Amino acid sequence: MQLPKLKHTDSSLTRPDRFFLMAGPCAIEGRDMALQIAERIVTITNRLQIPYIFKGSYRKANRTKLNSFTGIGDELALSILAEVGRTFDIPTVTDIHESPEAAMAAEYVDVLQIPAFLCRQTELIEAAAQTGKAVNVKKGQFLSGESMGFAVEKVKAANPDATVFLTDRGNSFGYGDLVVDYRNLPAMQAHGVPVVMDCTHSLQQPNQASGVTGGKPALIATIAKAAIAVGADGLFIETHPDPACAKSDGANMLPLDQLEALLEKLIRVREAIL
């Protein structure tokens, strides 16, 4: 699998013994933090020759409680994402929630992400594809990998030349937990697109009585290693310098200072299965 050409042109970034990485904070909390996180991950991924896409949500639309943090303002957050991309010459990705947001976000980022809860929203997928940007569709917690072929069909029908990713983030397991079925990764690869494992959201414990989503970040490495062993093309990891102080999803983010050691281990796993 080769990473679709976004801003990377160095052939060393498409080596078969590498996976690509989508990583960053859950939400854009401010300019300085976004640049700090991006700079650290760029330094790591350049050294390890891992293709990198910076991730950050410009707005969080799916929150349990009314007073949960949703963002610092759409235009400001999107402008910060654009600045990250320019500063480090890397592609960026953000999620969109309604069809009119697609054209707006496409002015600032390289990849538009369809959230898992919205992966069946035809007009939303079509709007993302019609921008000409790459589209990352997250598999719904209620769907199988096989059924995600219809999402790929929708993207390609709207724009035959569109680049498509599919991302697994676990399946609902009871009312407040998720479980990863690794059969979904090869099932989605059968649709002819790169497949990503979301190693942090798959460890969420949603719908808690407190109204704040929980998580099991101690298992991020376990999920990631298993995904690489199964053959995932890419990994999605939310990370933050201090997850306990993060404004969104801190309960299941990887501390930024643990990322480099984890990626080194994952490269060895990747090399072992070739």
Rank of each mutant, 00 (worst) to 15 (best):
H8G: 10
R15G: 12
F20Y: 13
F20T: 13
R40V: 14
V42N: 03
I44L: 07
Q49D: 07
K60T: 11
R63C: 07
L66H: 06
N67H: 12
F69P: 01
F69A: 00
G71M: 12
E83R: 15
V84S: 08
T87I: 07
F88H: 11
P91F: 08
D95S: 13
I96T: 06
H97T: 09
E98F: 07
P100S: 07
P100L: 01
E107G: 13
Q113R: 09
I114F: 06
A127L: 04
T131P: 04
T131L: 01
V137G: 00
G140W: 04
F150K: 03
A151R: 07
V152I: 06
K156G: 00
A157T: 14
D161W: 07
A162K: 10
V164R: 12
T167K: 06
N171R: 14
L178Q: 02
D181C: 04
Y182K: 03
A187Y: 00
G214L: 07
G214S: 05
I220N: 00
T222D: 08
A224W: 07
A226E: 07
T239C: 15
D242C: 13
P243W: 05
D249A: 12
D249K: 11
N252T: 10
P255T: 02
E260K: 10
A261L: 14
K265G: 14
